[in-house]
């Protein structure tokens, strides 16, 4: 049995919140660099060059790369042999967000009630997905999710007859509809199967993957590549100004589902793809 204090969790979340907002990951930098080399017009190349320069500047000066510093979504994999002391996991995460936001001069972007719409002022509460796993570590994976791209996400309950082709068509349609609103080049997270709500969790979870890493399942990796090809054939391009790179990656997670169902969720992520993780 390992003991982890809520102070450790709080401090880790505060640090991850800032690091995610200041430092674009190596995976995204590599993908943007490859995309810039492939574009053929000045406008598309300049747009990607500015996106890369923005990431450099944000990291150098500890500035948020985007003014929308996001809603925090944390996936906490809690080892069954871990004991958390000092309070609840959820309170510790929220206190970490509160401190990280204040220390990092990040923008409070959360409304406490979706109908009344009053800003909570400290970007809390975070969305926390907790899963019990074997072992004695606590793994925290954090996304700071922008609103513009989140708004372009979609769910559809397909039928088994719609099949693979139906999945491809729905994901491509969603990415095209997102267009410039989602700040392309985008990363497309897809959850196929499970149940109504679980497909959406899978779509979000797929965004935690290192960009460029294919699914280990060959038929799913092939699906990812086909969807990516079709989205990039749209011509939308960086920022929708036209070009070859509308999406940097399509990341599909799958799960078993009912014989009568084919749920599909598409979670759109912008080029300011902020994901960081730590193990305690």
């Amino acid at each position: 049995m390992k003991t982890i204090t809520t102070d450790q969790i709080r401090d880790a979340v505060a640090e991850l919140s800032q690091r995610a907002n200041f430092s674009l990951g190596a995976d995204m930098r590599a993908a943007l660099g490859t995309a810039a080399a492939a574009e053929t017009t000045d406008l598309a190349r300049n747009t990607l060059a500015r996106i890369i320069r923005n990431a450099d500047l944000a990291a150098e000066r500890s500035l948020p790369m985007c003014q929308d510093t996001g809603l925090v979504v944390v996936f906490a994999d809690v080892g069954q042999d871990v004991r958390i002391t000092g309070g609840t996991l959820r309170e510790a995460v929220n206190e970490g967000v509160r401190r990280g936001w204040k220390a990092g001069y990040l923008r409070a972007s959360v409304t406490g009630d979706p109908i009344l719409r009053k800003n909570t002022g400290d970007n809390t509460p975070a969305v926390v997905h907790t899963e019990l796993v074997p072992g004695e570590t606590l793994r925290l994976r954090l996304l700071a999710k922008g609103g513009g791209c989140e708004n372009m996400s979609a769910f559809r309950m397909l039928t088994p007859a719609d099949g693979r082709d139906g999945v491809v068509a729905f994901v491509v349609e969603t990415a095209k509809r997102a267009g410039p609103n989602a700040c392309p080049p985008i990363v497309v997270g897809v959850g196929v199967g499970g149940s109504f709500e679980y497909s959406a969790v899978l779509a979000k979870k797929s965004l935690l993957r290192r960009v460029g890493e294919r699914s280990p399942l060959p038929h799913v990796a092939e699906l990812e590549e086909e969807i990516l090809r079709q989205i990039n054939a749209s011509g939308i391009g960086p920022q929708g100004y036209g070009g070859k790179t509308t999406s940097l990656a399509v990341q599909v997670e799958t799960a078993a589902c009912h014989v009568a169902s084919l749920p599909v969720s598409v979670n759109i992520e912008c080029h300011a793809h902020r994901h960081q993780e730590v193990e305690l």
Partner: peptide, 28 residues
Amino acid sequence: KGYLNPEVKEALVRNQGVYFGAIGGTGA
């Protein structure tokens, strides 16, 4: 940044206006 609806595009023409795009996600 992002799409406008047809009503706003028509209003730009009617009023001799212009819609500029800045690169989303490059706030720094």
